Computed example of a mutant assay.
Amino acid sequence: MAILGVESVIFGVDDLDRCAVFWQDFGLTPVRHAPDEHVFEVQTGAKIVVRRRGDPRLPTAYSHKVGAHETVWGVDTQESLNALVAGLRADREVTEDADGIFHFQADCGMPLGLKLWTPRKIVSQPDPVNAPGNIQRLNLHRKWRQRAIPKTINHVVFFVKDYVGTFEFFRDRLNFRLTDHTRGVGAFARADGAWEHHNIFFVSCELPVAPDEPGFMHMAFGLEDIDELMLGVNLMEKKGWKNESPNTMGGLSRHRISSAIYYYFDSPAGGEAEYHVDTDYLDDNWIPRSWDFKFGSLMWATRVPTMWQGDVPMDVTLDPEGKSLDAYRLKPKISAQTKEKV
């Protein structure tokens, strides 16, 4: 049985029309506009569904917040879907809607869905990259685009109370793989039928910069190359969209932990939307690693936050059995006084 990745993310928002403008400017393709719902898709067919908060179709877990209220995961075959649903029904309620989505909650209360899904095949053709002494593009000019067009939904990120326990639910009940662990910060996990470094990242609510309650942080959209990313950033900024959330902590940069080049935008649908390029791709031969949070989190091109300035020692070890997670099970919340000192 295999989960292929994110099939759709369903948002609850206050301003439906402003969110529709944002996602179109971001490069998504509109597929449905209705008074109570807007639907957009990337090239694989994975969707963003935007509904008003209070819509009876939305789950109740995050209903008091603007943001992603449910993540639906696409499953490769009917047999796989049946097996996953049967396993979940052993100890929780699972309901099916008219669209063939099976809805349930993880142990942490996160609303999730499973749906039979066949993503559309996409073919990327990034231009070869020249370097001194390594000519890959001779007598050939680079191609130029008119706008950024996201190809995939690479991953979603959620704040959770117990990131170890939440990862273990995804591992044990949905067959996700641990890919990396940022000690004390969170766990990265890959769906068993996916190739991206991670399809979900569980971030601890215990962090001083984290909210006290679980909820949505951001989601990443895969682009072809850095040229497309820069074009997308330029067009978004020209249209007035900003990158100011304290969670983003920087502009154009590359993640150390997954190698991806990225840029975040604050989204009126809640959290951030991330342009994402050149991530690591993995299979089951990958050995998870355990990282110090300073080294593993980010590498900035600009706007380096104070706590990451100066030398950051490399502190990473292989962790094939995920034993480093044991030391980070749910602990008491960091005090407000400690937060103020950070």
Rank of each mutant, 00 (worst) to 15 (best):
A2K: 15
A2M: 13
V13R: 08
H33Q: 13
F40L: 04
V42W: 00
Q43M: 14
A46Y: 04
I48T: 12
R51D: 01
G54T: 06
D55N: 11
R57W: 12
R57F: 09
E70N: 06
G74A: 03
D76Y: 07
Q78H: 14
Q78A: 15
E79I: 11
S80R: 08
N82G: 12
L84K: 08
L84H: 10
D97A: 02
F104C: 03
D107T: 13
L114E: 08
W117F: 15
P119R: 02
P128I: 01
A131N: 07
N139Y: 09
N139P: 06
R147V: 02
K151C: 08
T152P: 05
V156D: 01
D162H: 05
V164C: 04
F176V: 10
L178I: 13
D180H: 03
D180G: 04
D180E: 10
G186E: 05
A187Y: 09
F188A: 08
A191H: 00
A191T: 09
A194W: 12
W195R: 14
N199D: 06
I200S: 01
F202M: 09
V203A: 10
C205E: 06
E206Q: 13
E206A: 13
P208I: 08
A210Q: 04
E213W: 10
F216I: 10
M217F: 11
G222L: 12
G222H: 05
D225K: 06
L231N: 00
V233L: 03
N234R: 13
K239C: 04
G240E: 05
W241V: 04
K242F: 09
P246R: 00
N247C: 09
N247R: 12
L252A: 08
S253G: 15
A260Q: 05
P268T: 00
A269I: 03
G271H: 03
E272R: 15
E274A: 04
Y275V: 01
H276P: 02
V277E: 02
R289E: 13
W291F: 12
L298H: 11
W300K: 11
A301M: 15
T302A: 09
P305G: 03
Q309F: 03
D311E: 14
V312Y: 02
V316D: 06
D319Q: 03
K323L: 13
L330D: 10
I334K: 14
I334V: 15
S335T: 15
T338Y: 15
K341A: 14
